[in-house]
Design a protein around this nucleic acid. Structure first.
Lengths: 217, 217
DNA sequence: CAGTGCTAAATTTGATCATATTCTTGGTGC
DNA sequence: GCACCAAGAATATGATCAAATTTAGCACTG
């Protein structure tokens, strides 16, 4: 399982992008925090051109927000943003689960099961970052099985938008009280039942987004 | 009606982005065509940094495709890409129509009606580019009424993905045979009937994507 | 002798950086 | 409280380096 897929030879702007994306997804940046080009230039030991390109990609995806005044910040989600994100996730992610159930083989179920076990372990030891990483990994692996690159792209963009806020909520409550529907999803995939997979995913999304809503209220 | 909203004072990378986006949406680029940084630098009389940033934004949105070899091309859609785009549009755009119907006032209906009239005029005079511009404008105005910035962003990204291919299809058949559901959408908005608006939008999307599928077959 | 395929030089294109310029902002004096 | 000035940050350019593609030359084979 090679999470850290060979980074040598990749252009600097790609590496900066990935590091920033992980920082957003896994909670090293918090909502409202300003992100400066110069700060990243120093922090990452690279010129400003690659930094600028990475920031453009992330602002284009909505993972960062461009304030008119040449300032960039990590977006702060209001109630209506959360509502839109919920709507979009519920519209898209069950579709991916459905496709995954149609294409999943025993090997895929096994890999997802292993990821889910690592997720449970992270919860058990109270490891917030581990939870965020494995939870994302679980969904990413499922999306890979669905082999729908465009839908997966869209969904990844949504995750980037709520990543920092999810981290805030987890930071408040720790890893207690983090129920998910992963067992039901796994069962549906193993049974090759697309509709059950879609239903379980819908429930998982709904549950996750409710947590964000309540945590930020 | 100020389409060309004040461009003075905007940074060069923003202007390059908008020009490129319009070229993609309204058919000045065709699927498979390579897009080079240096070419754009000459064509647009700006330095390479702004061009690079605009290209990163567009590749992040899926409007352009990054070939591993440092080359960028306009994406060529295969059947499965069209299927995914159709799925995503049907999942999202009816939702926007529903919200628009809930928030639309008489003024909004009037503006949309005017845009649709210009669209019909463009079809009547066989103006393919005019058709593409006004068709996009119609949907953009409706999305503005829906006031759901995140969903609108997502949908705009989808349009960027199929823009060049839509242009190819229109180029083949001219503006004959370009039916749409705009009259039904307008009626639903005027009647403040969210479900009818969603149904009509679903039909409009389905119709448009079917045309692309058949045109490229 | 013509055609094919390989190798290497040349050209084109992309990536990065250092630097100059412009804009925003926060402080200072009136 | 308002105008002005200085500091810092973002924007934009051109130069430089690296990588990839194309082209040209050459040998080899049918």
């Amino acid at each position: 399982m090679n999470l850290q897929a060979d980074t040598s030879g990749l252009p600097a702007h790609e590496l900066v992008y990935r590091r920033l994306r992980d920082m957003i997804l896994f909670g090293e940046l918090e909502p409202g925090q300003p992100v400066t080009i110069q700060g990243l230039v120093e922090h990452m030991q690279v010129g400003m051109t690659p930094v600028r390109e990475a920031l453009r990609r992330l602002t284009a995806a909505g993972a960062l927000e461009f304030q008119g005044n040449r300032r960039i910040i990590v977006p702060v989600l209001d109630a209506s943003a959360i509502e839109e994100l919920t709507l979009a996730r519920i519209a898209l992610e069950p579709q991916l689960a459905r496709r995954a159930a149609q294409r999943c083989d025993a090997d895929g179920v096994a890999r997802l099961g292993a990821t889910d076990a690592r997720l449970d372990a992270a919860i058990a030891r109270g490891d917030v970052r581990g939870y965020l990483v494995e939870n994302h990994q679980f969904h990413a692996e499922m999306n890979a099985i669905a082999s729908a690159p465009i839908l997966t792209d869209l969904v990844e963009g949504l995750w980037l938008r709520f990543g920092p806020s999810l981290r805030v909520v987890c930071g408040q409550f720790g890893t207690r009280n983090l129920p998910d529907q992963h067992k039901a999803i796994l069962a549906a995939l193993a049974a090759r039942d697309p509709e059950a997979a879609a239903r379980a995913m819908r429930a998982d999304v709904q549950q996750g987004m409710t947590q964000i809503t309540e945590g930020l209220a």
